[in-house]
């Protein structure tokens, strides 16, 4: 398994506690860059002014620093493009009562 796949799997442990859905299935992760153990995550949140902003960003950092070989994690939040429900996985939609 490559480093990016490992990162994605690890990010599935970071749950949005309001929705009970992980950040990958919610479609919050926009980009992952790995450069000699330094990881850069570009992600969003479901809404600007999300009260869980700091918790989720901190959770992403802590989760990834647990992976062997990762020295540093930089998480950047962007609102452009904004998150849309279309980014959610089938599983996430099902958990929210769709279908």
């Amino acid at each position: 398994m490559g480093m990016k796949e490992k990162i994605i799997e690890q990010l599935r442990y970071v749950i949005d506690p309001e929705l009970g859905i992980n950040v990958v299935d919610l479609g919050l992760i926009y980009d992952i860059t790995v450069n000699e153990g330094n990881v850069s995550i570009l992600m969003t949140l479901t809404t600007p002014g999300c009260p869980l902003h700091d918790s989720i960003v901190g959770g992403v950092k802590r989760a990834l620093l647990d992976i062997e070989g990762i020295k540093d994690v930089d998480v950047q939040i962007t609102w452009n493009p904004p998150w849309t429900p279309e980014r959610m996985s089938e599983e996430a939609l099902r958990q929210l009562g769709h279908r």
Partner: peptide, 15 residues
């Protein structure tokens, strides 16, 4: 936030 914010991503936390 007080109890579990720092544990998210490390261990299972309640919703």
């Amino acid at each position: 936030t007080h109890r579990y914010s720092k544990k998210i991503g490390k261990e299972n936390v309640p919703t």
